[in-house]
């Protein structure tokens, strides 16, 4: 499937839900970069959606409606007292359980300490190489600080929830937390207990909806197996059913190909 023309051939079948995983990923990747194709797919989807009306309507038994409404009312009753804004204190009260999540807090102090070291190096005049190395480190720390500011901004969004992510059989000791507001497109994933990978592999994060896993970013971990990443999705997080982390070749994959080490349901 190497040309735009042949991918265009797949658009009607994409709208009909008749593509396998590999084809679907190819089409979705193509759609992300081609507004014209996105407009076309909406036309095909509208026509495909009409097929759902072609089935003869059949009124379900009345007990089905009662069951649906009963479940919904129970849920509504449970949700009302704890709607979004009240969630924030519960997250902060729980943060003691996730000390790794706040490991970046001393970063600003670390930068200051580095600057002092930098000044000392300059005094010595003979330590130019070390100064250069420290400047590189400083720039990296500044980028990390910026990233962590982004993390802090994300977890301060009203309505934010904390969802538990579990290690799979491949990595039962791993744990994670997804910090996200249902209607936001960004979330923070914090993990612990992962193995350090060889240089040819990386951890890739996936957001999974009804259709397929969507690549959501890469996860770097430290020597202790902990890491933090800000995920960005094309649509609100509540549209997804699950989040997962897999081991992929360096550079990442369009769909999971390696072992899945963390998996958790997204529920609100």
């Amino acid at each position: 499937m190497s040309t735009d023309e042949s991918i265009h051939d797949l658009l009607p079948l994409y709208a009909l839900g008749a593509l396998d995983e590999a084809d679907r990923v190819r089409v979705e990747t193509y759609l992300e970069a081609n507004p014209h194709a996105r407009a076309k797919i909406l036309e095909y989807e509208a026509a495909a959606d009409e097929l759902g009306h072609a089935a003869e309507p059949v009124t379900p038994p009345a007990r089905i409606k009662r069951a649906v409404l009963s479940r919904v009312r129970r849920d509504a009753g449970a949700r009302r007292p704890s709607m979004p804004v009240r969630e924030k204190p519960s997250f902060f009260s729980a943060r003691g359980r996730f000390p790794a999540a706040f490991a970046w807090m001393p970063t600003a102090l670390s930068i200051a300490a580095l600057l002092v070291a930098l000044a000392a190096g300059l005094w010595g005049l003979t330590l130019r190489a070390e100064v250069a190395a420290l400047q590189t480190q400083n720039a990296a720390l500044a980028r990390e600080l910026e990233n962590q500011r982004e993390v802090l901004a994300q977890i301060n969004v009203p309505g934010v929830r904390v969802l538990a992510i579990q290690g799979t059989e491949a990595r039962p000791g791993a744990t994670g937390r997804l910090i996200a507001a249902p209607d936001e497109r960004e979330a923070v994933l914090i993990v612990r207990g992962l193995a350090v990978l060889d240089p040819d592999h990386t951890y890739q994060v996936w957001l999974i909806d009804d259709q397929s896993p969507k690549p959501a970013g890469f996860l770097s971990i430290d020597e202790a197996g902990s890491g933090v990443v800000v995920l960005t999705a094309a649509i609100p997080l509540e549209s997804f059913q699950a989040v997962g982390v897999s081991i992929e070749p360096q550079g990442g994959s369009q769909a999971p190909t390696g072992e899945i080490v963390l998996l958790g349901e997204i529920t609100y």
């Binding site: 759902g52 009306h53 919904v72």
Partner: peptide
């Protein structure tokens, strides 16, 4: 049927009118 309407309840905010009519979204879930 039960699961479809449960998902509507849980994810109605994910429905985007600009992407198509509600019935299309609903029947796609079904």
């Amino acid at each position: 049927v039960q699961e479809t309407f449960w998902r509507v309840w849980q994810r109605a905010s994910a429905y985007r009118p600009e992407r198509g009519v509600f019935a299309g979204w609903l029947l796609r879930i079904t």
